[in-house]
Simulated assay, not measured.
Amino acid sequence: MTTLQIALIGFGCISLYLAMAWLDSKKQWKLIDWFNGETSNPFISDKVAQAQATISDKDAEIAELKERIQILEKIVTEPAYELNKKINSL
C-alpha cells in the first residue's frame, strides 16, 4: 500500500465517523452506538428509555426535596429556634 492509499483510507474513516456523529445529533439515529454494539436498531429513537430516565430523575429530586423538608421541620420545631425568634423580635 502506498502512503496515498493509507492517507485516503484514514481520511475516509474519519469522514465516515464525523458523518455518523452528525446524523446522531440531528436525527437521533444512534449509528455510533450501533457500530459499538450498544443498541439493536439505530433508526428507532429510544423514547421509552428517555421517559424512564426523566421519571427516575424526578423521583430522585422528589426524594431530595422530602429530605430537605424534614430537615427544615426539625429546625423549625426545635425549642432553640423559637427562643432565637423571640429574642430577635425584641
Rank of each mutant, 00 (worst) to 15 (best):
A60E: 11
I62W: 06
E61M: 02
L4H: 03
Y17N: 09
A80W: 11
D57C: 02
L4R: 06
I9E: 15
G37C: 02
I55R: 09
Q50A: 15
D33P: 01
E64R: 05
M20S: 09
R68P: 01
I55E: 13
Q5P: 00
Q5I: 06
Y81F: 13
E67C: 02
W34H: 10
S89G: 13
A63I: 07
I62N: 08
K30H: 14
G12P: 04
L23N: 02
E73I: 08
L72E: 09
I62F: 07
Q28A: 07
L31F: 07
L23Y: 02
F35D: 04
P79L: 15
I71F: 00
V48N: 09
P79Y: 13
L65K: 05
N36D: 07
I75S: 08
S89W: 12
A49L: 05
A49V: 06
L65M: 05
K85S: 15
D59N: 10
A63D: 11
G12H: 12
A53V: 07
Q50E: 15
Q70L: 10
Q50T: 12
I44K: 05
W29Q: 02
D24N: 00
T3A: 03
S25H: 13
A80T: 15
Q50I: 11
S40H: 08
I9N: 14
L4N: 04
F43G: 01
A49I: 02
K27P: 01
A60R: 04
K27I: 10
N88A: 15
A63P: 01
D59P: 01
K66H: 06
A53K: 14
L8H: 12
S45G: 10
N36P: 00
I75Y: 09
N36W: 02
L90N: 11
Q70R: 10
E67V: 05
A7L: 14
E64I: 01
V48F: 06
L83N: 03
Y81G: 01
A53Q: 15
T77A: 15
I62L: 11
L31M: 08
S45I: 12
